Amino acid sequence: DRIFMTRTEALEFLLKAHQTAVDKIGHPSHKQTPADHAAIEALDRLLLDVRARRVDQFQINASAAQIIVTD
């Protein structure tokens, strides 16, 4: 599946995904793992790359739809 978004929409989408990941590892019942921190770092890099126009398409994980940034 493909989803087309403007750059602004894609950045909002990534910010929400980032916040969800941060909230998940901050929850008291969740045991933090290196994979959790790696996922947040990957989202940080992706946010910067989309914002800087170095990336025009991405996929958060293998089961997610491919996001295509349109400007």
Rank of each mutant, 00 (worst) to 15 (best):
D1G: 03
D1T: 03
D1L: 01
D1M: 02
D1A: 02
D1K: 03
D1R: 02
D1C: 11
R2I: 13
F4Q: 04
F4Y: 14
F4L: 08
F4P: 03
M5K: 02
M5S: 00
M5W: 02
T6S: 10
T6R: 04
R7Q: 04
R7A: 03
R7H: 07
R7V: 07
T8E: 12
T8A: 14
T8L: 11
T8H: 14
E9P: 00
E9T: 03
A10K: 00
A10C: 03
A10Q: 00
A10N: 00
E12C: 11
E12N: 11
E12F: 08
F13I: 05
F13Y: 15
F13C: 04
F13Q: 02
L14E: 00
L14R: 00
L14H: 00
L14C: 01
L15C: 06
L15H: 09
L15E: 09
L15M: 13
K16R: 13
K16G: 05
K16I: 09
K16P: 00
K16Q: 09
A17N: 03
A17G: 02
A17P: 00
A17Q: 08
A17E: 09
H18I: 15
H18E: 01
H18Q: 09
H18A: 06
Q19L: 06
Q19F: 05
T20Y: 12
T20P: 01
T20H: 12
T20G: 08
T20D: 14
A21W: 13
V22K: 11
K24F: 09
K24L: 12
K24D: 05
K24M: 10
K24N: 09
K24C: 05
K24Q: 09
I25R: 05
I25K: 04
H27K: 12
H27L: 12
H27I: 08
P28M: 08
P28R: 06
S29N: 13
S29I: 06
S29P: 08
H30M: 06
H30P: 05
H30T: 07
K31L: 13
K31P: 11
K31G: 11
Q32C: 08
Q32M: 15
Q32D: 13
Q32P: 15
T33V: 08
T33A: 07
T33Y: 07
T33N: 13
P34D: 11
P34K: 09
P34T: 08
A35H: 08
A35C: 04
A35S: 10
A35G: 10
D36A: 06
D36L: 15
D36I: 08
D36R: 03
H37C: 07
H37D: 09
H37W: 15
H37S: 09
H37G: 07
A38L: 12
A38E: 11
A39I: 14
I40V: 11
I40H: 05
I40E: 02
E41R: 13
E41Q: 12
E41V: 12
E41L: 11
E41T: 09
E41H: 12
A42E: 11
A42W: 14
A42V: 12
A42P: 01
A42D: 07
A42L: 14
L43G: 00
L43K: 00
L43V: 03
L43S: 01
D44E: 15
D44Q: 15
R45L: 07
L46C: 02
L46N: 00
L47R: 05
L47F: 09
L48T: 13
L48V: 13
L48K: 15
D49N: 07
D49H: 05
D49C: 07
V50C: 02
V50N: 00
R51I: 14
R51Y: 10
R51L: 13
R51V: 08
R51W: 08
A52T: 11
A52L: 14
A52K: 09
A52G: 07
R53C: 09
R53M: 11
R53P: 01
R53V: 04
R54G: 03
R54V: 11
R54F: 05
V55S: 02
V55C: 05
V55G: 01
D56F: 15
D56Y: 15
D56W: 15
D56N: 15
D56E: 07
Q57C: 10
Q57K: 12
F58R: 00
Q59G: 03
Q59I: 08
Q59T: 09
I60K: 01
I60D: 04
I60S: 03
I60W: 07
N61P: 11
N61A: 11
A62E: 13
A62L: 10
A62R: 08
S63L: 13
S63Q: 13
S63F: 14
A64F: 12
A64K: 08
A64C: 06
A64E: 11
A64T: 13
A65C: 07
Q66V: 15
Q66T: 13
I67M: 03
I67K: 01
I68E: 03
I68N: 04
I68P: 01
I68H: 06
I68S: 04
V69S: 01
V69F: 03
V69P: 01
V69K: 01
V69R: 01
T70L: 14
T70E: 09
T70D: 11
T70Q: 10
D71L: 06
D71R: 06
D71E: 09
D71H: 14
